[in-house]
Design a binder for these strands. Structure first.
Lengths: 213, 213
DNA sequence: GTCTATAAGACGATAGAC
DNA sequence: GTCTATCGTCTTATAGAC
C-alpha cells in the first residue's frame, strides 16, 4: 500500500507537473499525505504514542485534524503507516548482514543497528517504535515483527545450534540495551561515546552470544 | 549458590516506612495512602505514566480522585512515591554487589538485576520506571538516579580503568536489553527462558564488559 | 480534497461542604 | 480525611459545507 519508503525528503517532488502557472494544484493529495506522515513520524518519535495527538500531527503538517482522520481513519493507523518506513532500511540491509563469514556476523549486525540509529532519518521511526512498544500492544507487535521475526530468526537460521534463537535474542538484547541507554534515555557517557568505539566494544560481545562458548 | 528468584515476602507495601518525606500522616490514614500507592504502582507498571490517570488510580483504590490529589498534590508526585519502593531493594543489595572478588562482580550484578525482575514485588515498580522513562522526563531522571548514579558509578569506582564508566554502562546495557525483551516486550524464547540459564549466559558477558579485554 | 463546527467525553486540578 | 461538584483544557472522531 504505502510502499513509499522515500526516505526523509518532504515529498520529493509532485508527481504531476503543474501545467498552469506555478500554482500548486489543490486537488493533489499525495504531497499532503506525505507531509502528514512526516509530521506523525516526528511527533511519535519525540513523544511516544500516547502523548502524540492527531491534532498535534495535523498542526505540524499544516492541515486540519479532520484531514488526518480522512486519510487514515484512526490514530493507530496513522502510527502504523508512520513507522512502516523503518522497515525498508532494515529489510534492505538484512541480507547483507546474513551474507559473509559467520565469525563476523556479530560485527555486521552491530554495524547495521548502530548505523540505523546514527542516521537521523531512520532514527526517528526507531525511536517511535521503541517509545511506543513499551506502552502499546500494537507497537510491541510491530517490534516483534521487525526485530524478532524478520531479523533474529534469519540470523538464528545461520547458526547450527539448538539454542540458536535464544542466542540471537541475547545478542539483540545487548543492542537494544545500548539503544535504550544511548538514544532513548541518554545516559552519559554512553550517550556521547564515539559510534566506532561502541561498535568496537559491542561487536565481539554480539559475536560471542551468537557463536561463542 | 543463591537462587536467582529473590526471597522477599510478597507484601512489601505494608512495611510502613517510618520516615517518609516531610509529612507524617496525622490522626489516621487507615492504610488509605498505601492503598492508593499500591493501585498507582499497578497502573503505572501496566500502562506507563501517560496512559495512567489519577482517576483510574483512585477508582482502583476505591477512593475519590480528589483524595489522591489531597495526599500527593500532582500526578508526578504520585508516580515518584509509587516507584520509590524500588529503591529500597536496590540500595540494600547494592553493597553486596560491590563486596566480593572482582572477577565475580559480573555474576553478582546479573543475579541482583535478574532477581529484582523475577520478584513480582520489585518487578512492578521497575516496569513502571521503564515504561515511563522512555516517554517522560521525570521518569527518565528517576532511572538515571537509580541505575546510573546509585549503581553504575559505584561499580565503575571499583574498576581501576579510565573507561570504567563506559564499561559499566555497556554492562548495564546488556541487562537493560534483557529486561526489555524478556519482561517488557516479552519476545520468545527469552521471555520463557529459565532465569538461571539467563544468568549463566549473561553473567560472563557482563563480567567481560567490566574487566575484560 | 480540504475545511469549519461540534459532538461526546477524559483529563488534571481546585474549592469547599461535612 | 473524605467527599461532591465543577472549571478549563485537552482529546478522538464525525457531519457536512464548499
Amino acid at each position: 500500500m504505502t510502499g513509499v519508503t522515500a526516505s526523509d525528503g518532504p515529498a520529493a517532488s509532485a508527481q504531476g507537473a503543474p501545467r498552469r502557472r506555478g500554482r500548486p494544484p489543490r486537488t493533489e493529495s499525495a504531497g499532503t499525505r506525505d507531509r502528514i506522515l512526516d509530521a506523525a513520524r516526528e511527533q511519535f518519535s519525540a513523544r511516544g504514542y500516547e502523548k502524540t495527538s492527531v491534532r498535534g500531527i495535523a498542526k505540524a503538517a499544516g492541515v486540519d485534524s479532520a484531514l488526518v482522520h480522512h486519510y487514515f481513519g484512526t490514530k493507530e493507523r496513522v502510527f502504523e503507516a508512520a513507522v512502516e518506513v523503518a522497515f525498508g532500511p532494515v529489510l534492505d540491509e538484512r541480507d547483507s548482514v546474513l551474507e559473509g563469514p559467520l565469525d563476523e556476523v556479530g560485527e555486521r549486525m552491530t554495524r547495521m543497528i548502530v548505523g540505523l540509529w546514527e542516521n537521523p532519518v531512520t532514527r526517528a521511526p526507531l525511536l517511535a517504535i521503541v517509545r511506543s512498544a513499551v506502552n502499546n500492544d500494537a507497537a510491541a507487535a510491530v517490534f516483534r515483527r521487525l526485530v524478532a521475526s524478520q531479523l533474529l530468526r534469519r540470523v538464528a537460521g545461520q547458526l547450527d545450534r539448538p539454542d540458536a534463537e535464544l542466542r540471537a535474542e541475547l545478542a539483540a538484547a545487548q543492542l537494544v540495551g545500548v539503544a535504550m541507554i544511548r538514544y532513548v534515555i541518554r545516559v552519559e557517557p554512553l550517550a556521547s561515546a564515539d559510534p566506532e568505539d561502541i561498535v568496537r566494544r559491542v561487536a565481539p560481545v554480539v559475536q560471542g552470544h551468537l557463536t561463542g562458548g
